[in-house]
Design a protein around this nucleic acid. Sequence first.
DNA 1: CAACAAACAGTCAAGCCTGACTTTTTGTTG
DNA 2: CAACAAAAAGTCAGGCTTGACTGTTTGTTG
Lengths: 189, 189
Amino acid sequence: MMRARLLEATLDCLVERGFAGTSTTLVSERAGVSRGAQLHHFPTKNDLVVAAVEHLTERRGAELAAAAATLPDGPRRTRAVVQMLGDHFASPVFDAALELWVAARSDEHLLAAVGPLEQRVGRETHRLTVELLGADESVPGVREMVQATLDLVRGLGLANTISDDTRRRRRILDTWADTLDTVLKGTTR
Amino acid sequence: MMRARLLEATLDCLVERGFAGTSTTLVSERAGVSRGAQLHHFPTKNDLVVAAVEHLTERRGAELAAAAATLPDGPRRTRAVVQMLGDHFASPVFDAALELWVAARSDEHLLAAVGPLEQRVGRETHRLTVELLGADESVPGVREMVQATLDLVRGLGLANTISDDTRRRRRILDTWADTLDTVLKGTTR
DNA sequence: CAACAAACAGTCAAGCCTGACTTTTTGTTG
DNA sequence: CAACAAAAAGTCAGGCTTGACTGTTTGTTG
């Protein structure tokens, strides 16, 4: 319970203040957990943050699964799938992940933990996307287009961190969904 | 001259150690500039870093222009343009920009300087891309696909910061170029 | 119920970063 | 060439963060 509170507080700080602005003292205060208790569960800041990555991953999965359940069938499905991914990569969840991503870039310990984890999450997200789109990856080029879709929403998510970009994202993803449908044609439904 | 050395040192630190790991002391040492001299040119860390953004922008422009001059004509041009953009967004230049981008997310002063600047650079990059591709933006969907291309390479650049992603990027962008050509068909050349 | 271990709480010193302050050098103008 | 202003150099104190240390509560087992 203490553990969970600490992890949530860490993620909140990450979103609000960034990695550097997230001090262990601040986290313990936010979580309403004493400094000693915190140090008991997570001896160092890195331990704390790495654990937060794990926790975040679970939330990522849960959020995507929940959103996926509400998707419509029929000709508008591709568009809905793509918009769902776009929204997900524009949420605070992405902000927190981005902070970790960038922090790990120049911290080998963090990288050792975040790298493999993010790779795993990436594969899982890819699998889910293929499933939601009903794409046939045995067709040449289809796999690359699915990957491109995920990298595209990642790029859109990045753009969204600085200024609200929702309208532009909607337009771009609508157009992309049409293109994607053309490429996948004959393999979906 | 001192100014330029400070800016270059700042960018080097940014790439190697990230925003938080870039201390003003470290920068002055690297640049071979005394602390007082540094404080004369840039009173605060923010001033230093904001100026570095400006400087980076110029380098960005110069690098892109240089690369653009070597592009081939003919049917392979789209592929070459897209790969060029992909390489550019996977270079240290992007790493430095990413650090600033993320740091600005949770620092309003930095955001006030980086936001408008990055918007300007974005527009300029868009304009250049349209020109290089010979795209006709009056055709519906074309503008969105050009934007999508830029957001895609941004996403690929982000993925590349953690682990070297060159092979995957090549494959994805090759496929993307084919799709892009189909959409632009009749409007190019 | 007593004893022991684990979780929790609070305090604090060492280290680092930033930016202010003082002194020295360089260069320009009358 | 003298005087003055601008640039550069060096020093340093204040503030913040981290993680180590010590004391207290809770809970479990014999």
